[in-house]
Simulated scan of single mutants.
Amino acid sequence: MRRLLMHEVRGVGSLARWVARRTHGVREGDHAAAYTGPQTAMMYGLLFVSVVETVVLTVLLTPWPLVHRIMLVLDVYTVLAVLALHAGCVTRPHVAGADGSLRIRYGALFDLLIAGEQIASVRVERRYPSGGLVQFTPSEGQGDDGSVLDLVVGSQTSVRVELTEPVTFVRPLGRTGRAQVVRFHADEAEELVRVLRATRP
């Protein structure tokens, strides 16, 4: 519950940053990499459906004031939640640090910081996995070595990072894991890879 509440608070903060056109965690000299491209149309489509549903239910439930109020609150919350999720993704991009580090994020739900010296190699690798946002494939018989973390946006990943040693990551609801290969999506994957290679120590 505490983690869910923190996600809600960060969501409100993301909406404020979105309105102010400010990003989170991007310093001077850093390279910000957007990743919202594959999901933007879906997000706005979901938002449109939620708004239409709110209007329709407002009309249909007028004879039942109590039910009308409850549904109105739920629908408005849904609209704000969708906006907050998208705002979080826009205002919290991936960050290739000037020091060679890499910060991989998905809004306020996922945040993994990798030091420059932990990056063994990075390349563009386009994949289209099905399933949820965070997917983890443990290696067999090798401990954490070779374990793969996929951070999937719009059913795709486009960058592969191999590490010198496994890193610990935290899932949105708090469970942890360790992976030595991380795959994620960036809208301009080639540019991000170029910057990471140029800044590697």
Rank of each mutant, 00 (worst) to 15 (best):
173 L>P: 12
138 P>I: 05
110 F>M: 10
182 V>L: 02
139 S>F: 05
92 R>L: 09
117 E>G: 10
155 S>E: 14
138 P>M: 04
187 D>Q: 03
128 Y>S: 15
167 V>R: 03
95 V>S: 00
154 G>Q: 06
196 L>P: 03
148 V>H: 10
148 V>R: 11
128 Y>A: 15
169 F>A: 02
186 A>H: 04
103 R>A: 12
110 F>H: 11
187 D>M: 03
195 V>A: 05
156 Q>N: 06
115 A>I: 09
101 S>A: 10
196 L>V: 08
189 A>W: 05
114 I>Q: 04
147 S>A: 09
109 L>V: 12
156 Q>E: 09
83 L>D: 02
167 V>T: 02
143 G>N: 06
126 R>C: 12
96 A>E: 00
110 F>Q: 09
121 S>C: 09
123 R>D: 13
162 E>S: 05
194 R>E: 13
144 D>H: 10
98 A>E: 12
92 R>A: 11
163 L>N: 01
169 F>T: 01
187 D>L: 03
158 S>M: 07
192 L>P: 02
157 T>M: 09
113 L>C: 15
87 A>I: 04
133 L>G: 08
199 T>L: 14
94 H>V: 01
120 A>S: 12
87 A>G: 04
188 E>M: 10
180 Q>L: 10
100 G>D: 07
127 R>I: 15
134 V>Q: 02
97 G>T: 08
115 A>C: 11
191 E>Q: 09
116 G>T: 06
162 E>R: 07
136 F>G: 06
160 R>W: 03
118 Q>R: 12
161 V>F: 00
119 I>S: 08
168 T>Q: 14
193 V>A: 02
132 G>T: 08
97 G>A: 10
121 S>R: 10
135 Q>W: 07
97 G>P: 07
95 V>K: 00
153 V>D: 07
120 A>L: 11
181 V>Y: 02
126 R>F: 14
85 L>V: 12
90 V>I: 14
89 C>S: 09
140 E>T: 13
191 E>F: 03
200 R>I: 12
144 D>W: 09
104 I>S: 05
88 G>C: 00
143 G>R: 05
151 L>R: 02
121 S>W: 08
134 V>R: 02
161 V>L: 02
148 V>E: 10
148 V>I: 12
182 V>Y: 00
103 R>T: 13
94 H>M: 04
128 Y>E: 15
128 Y>R: 15
181 V>T: 05
145 D>Q: 14
173 L>H: 15
139 S>L: 05
162 E>T: 07
182 V>W: 00
172 P>H: 02
157 T>N: 08
192 L>N: 03
161 V>E: 01
190 E>H: 07
111 D>F: 07
84 A>R: 00
105 R>V: 04
90 V>G: 13
181 V>E: 02
177 G>P: 00
102 L>H: 00
106 Y>D: 09
162 E>H: 05
106 Y>W: 13
123 R>K: 14
109 L>R: 13
127 R>S: 15
